[in-house]
């Protein structure tokens, strides 16, 4: 279990759903009785531009309203962003990074120069197999649950049910839950 204040930075491209994923993470953590924040970084960028989103999760009320400077976890939804210096900003040996990629952690380290623990998961491939769409969010949440313990799967499952049951039915719920579990099972860390 992470310390009192757990901070997450998401890297993706506008339109890939990092903002929604960060909100889902926050909601699942809220259901676990945690205090949460989720906030994206806004510019005037349009679809495809690199973007960031943030989470804070804590056992105590969160007062901070500044941006996340030293994340405990960096989540990279698009591995083509790894060369961007923003990816490693404020990180050190204690930071964890989870990357959606078909490559291995050595490649990730080489690409990014990241010093902490690297975990990889083929989130897009899994999403394509399970959902028929390359939206990696639920897979990434499964990976986060496994690697950090900051959220538990059953709470994410509930969120998935809340979000999809009414609109899309039980089948879509089950598909997403399978994707979530595969993220949990298939994430691989290098240390």
């Amino acid at each position: 279990m992470p310390g009192k204040l757990f901070e997450v930075r998401w890297h993706g491209r506008a339109g890939q759903g990092a903002k929604s994923a960060s909100q889902m993470l926050a909601e699942a953590a809220l259901d676990m009785g945690k205090y949460i924040q989720a906030f994206p970084e806004y510019g005037a960028e349009r679809t495809g531009a690199p973007m960031k989103a943030f989470n804070r999760i804590s056992d105590e009320p969160i007062l901070l309203h500044s941006s996340v400077e030293k994340p405990d976890l960096v989540v990279v939804i698009d591995d083509t962003l790894l060369g961007n210096p923003d990816i490693v900003a404020g990180t050190d040996e204690n930071t964890i990074m989870i990357v959606n990629t078909v490559r291995d952690s050595n490649w990730v380290r080489q690409k990014s120069g990241f010093k902490g623990k690297i975990c990889v998961v083929k989130a897009t491939d899994i999403a394509l197999e399970e959902l028929g769409r390359g939206t990696p969010n639920t897979v990434m949440l499964g990976a986060i649950a496994r690697v950090t313990g900051v959220i538990e799967l059953k709470y994410v499952e509930e969120k998935i049910r809340d979000m999809f049951l009414k609109k899309f039915g039980e089948e879509v719920v089950q598909k997403n839950i399978r994707a979530l579990h595969r993220g949990y099972e298939e994430v691989r860390c290098d240390a």
């Binding site: 909100q23 924040q37 906030f39 806004y42």
Partner: peptide, 12 residues
């Protein structure tokens, strides 16, 4: 209420 920080920030 502060733009983006509160308007777009998710909190409990």
């Amino acid at each position: 209420f502060d733009g983006f920080i509160i308007s777009h920030g998710v909190e409990v």
